[in-house]
Design a protein around this nucleic acid. Structure first.
Length: 288
DNA sequence: AAATGACACAACCGCCGATGA
DNA sequence: ATCATCGGCGGTTGTGTCATT
């Protein structure tokens, strides 16, 4: 045998399937192939494209990363609310949930749930699947996210702490918030009849000093609608208009907008996902 | 400045249902 | 009817980055 070990192993490597992170060259190859031949038939694609990857790997790379329809950047408050609501309905049906968040992949949503939501449950020593934790999400988290969405939509107004005032939370304002990488601003959000405004109270009252009141503060935040109504409202608009938007405009426009606002948004995002555990604890203790 | 830990996200794995030969 | 293949899904692991000590 004159063939050295390194030679044989290198020829083996040539035939072996690659694993691990994709290189730029592989990305380019896959993108180029799909631009010419379209996606699908992944095993065939893997062979014909010259990529030393499995069809599955190619599919995953395309769907989760390379596909221009994939939205980059942090999840907006509305998207987070949608995820929470849809997860409460469907559980870990990530792909089903992802179908209702244009540009978001099941993988991304799954990661979000595991790294953000389940983390909070762990910190609270609660089973993330427990009804107790679901209640915390519904009563504490969702109103906060909605509040955050409204604040982002109109920062100056939000800067003022408004106690016990009726604040019209228009769907338009929520859609404005969507400029931050969610949905195109030109999408007309639909407003079902008779749902023109939502009563929102300042949510900073979590550290309940209202010992005389038997109401849980968060419950009173939505007097006109309960949370599920609100989510349905948002969700319907989101979903119905899903078919209407121009994907190309969306990708260019919102991505640029998202990048432009990345700095502020990051800060908001951190605040969104990590509102103090103190507050969560207080909320939890209040319930008990 | 280095070591360590936590976190976020990309990628892989195994299973399952659909489809076609 | 059976088997093989493929694509999709959810769970899990690997890895790079950032923060903390």
């Amino acid at each position: 045998m004159s063939t050295s070990k390194s030679d044989s192993s290198s020829s083996e490597d040539d035939n072996e399937l690659r694993r691990g992170p994709w290189t730029l060259e592989e990305d380019n190859l896959l993108t180029q192939y799909i631009s010419v031949n379209g996606e699908g038939r992944w095993n065939l694609l893997a062979k014909l494209s010259g990529l030393k990857r499995t069809g599955k790997s190619c599919r995953l790379r395309w769907l989760n990363y390379l596909n221009p329809q994939v939205k980059r950047g942090n999840l907006s408050s509305e998207e987070q609310v949608l995820i929470l609501e849809l997860h409460s309905k469907w559980g870990n049906r990530w792909s089903k949930i992802a179908q209702h968040l244009p540009g978001r992949t099941d993988n991304e949503i799954k990661n979000y749930w595991r790294t953000r939501i389940q983390k909070q449950a762990r910190h609270l020593n609660i089973d993330p699947n427990s009804t107790e934790f679901k209640e915390i999400i519904r009563r504490f988290w969702m109103p906060r996210l909605l509040q955050k969405a409204r604040e982002i939509a109109s920062p100056p107004a939000a800067a003022m702490s408004i106690q016990n005032q009726t604040i019209p939370l228009s769907i338009e304002s929520v859609s404005q918030c969507s400029q931050i990488g969610t949905v195109p601003t030109q999408i007309p959000w639909q407003r079902p009849c008779g749902m023109n405004e939502i009563v929102v109270q300042n949510s900073s009252c979590v550290s309940s000093s209202s010992s005389e009141s038997s109401n849980i503060p968060e419950v009173s935040q939505f007097q006109a609608l309960d949370n599920s109504d609100m989510i349905s409202l948002m969700y319907d608009g989101y979903h119905v208009n899903n078919n209407n938007y121009d994907m190309e405009t969306f990708n260019l426009g919102t991505t640029v907008a998202a990048e432009a606002m990345a700095g502020n948004w990051m800060n908001n995002e951190v605040a969104c996902s990590l509102w103090g555990m103190d507050e969560l604890w207080q909320f939890r203790n209040f319930q008990e």
